[in-house]
Amino acid sequence: MAEALHNTPPVLPPEMARPAEEKAVSPWKEAWRSFRKNKLAIVGLSIVSFFILLAIFADLIAPYEYDATNLRNKNLAPSAEHWFGTDEFGRDILTRIIYGARISLWVGTLSVAGSIIVGSALGIIAGYYGRWVDAVISRIFDILLAFPSILLAIAVVSVLGPSLRNALIAIAIINVPTFGRLLRSRVLSVKEEEYITAAKAIGMKDSRILLHHILPNSLAPIIVSGTLAVATAIIEAAALGFLGLGAQAPTPEWGKMLADSRNYIIDAPWTVLFPGLAIMLTVLGFNLMGDGLRDALDPRMKN
């Protein structure tokens, strides 16, 4: 073998030994590096992590029971005992907000995860197989997108009945076409890449090409819009809660808290202020993080 290679100059001169710190930089590591440099993105990540920690350790952190009523203490202003005050039933608002983080994050991430799984599967199938499959799936997406999303969610919930779980399902359904279209367009462009032709030339099956080549190369945009979609999903869940179609009393859902307290907006503004702030902060956190991820993962932003 050595003889046959005689004519081939080695790519590197032989004396150039393997560099001591030879590290392969994977595209993900590179993205993390540029994400870290983005201050706003880190702020977003911190806010999101903060709420995640609140949600996980709610039982340990919360000073009271979220459903412990005390009618003598109703609508108390913020004080050392009740940092965020109390609501119309004398429940501690801080406690309810901490538990509310659990619900909002749960609904946000789970519904988006559902939309991603269903939407991606449909989008990949539509993009890869094309023809009538594509036509049918794309028309379904078009129909879903033709409705204003919150209206569609209300319709779905009114069919299924108002509950937190059904609100989650409704939000998942209305986000399916977003991810479906995203994946479909990614597949359409990745499919034409030459390394896909190369994969076919090697003799790979369609399923392997889809899972090992097309899906990983479509992951970056899913992560970005997934993060941004969590923010919208949280707002939508709050909106459904506000309308009485989501979480039911006494579940400490932020939108529901807003709705229940809106009669006291003049006399006890803290009952409305803090749940509103919580929603705003979480959504802001997810949005900042999503923007940062987009900048980090978009190859065109690289220098």
């Binding site: 595209p27 890449e193 030459e194 390394y195 032709t197 190369a198 030339a201 080549h213 190369n217």
Partner: peptide
């Protein structure tokens, strides 16, 4: 097959 474009024919990931 060996392809023309060595940049496009290898999966970047």
């Amino acid at each position: 097959m060996v392809f023309q474009d060595p940049f496009a024919s290898l999966n970047p990931r």
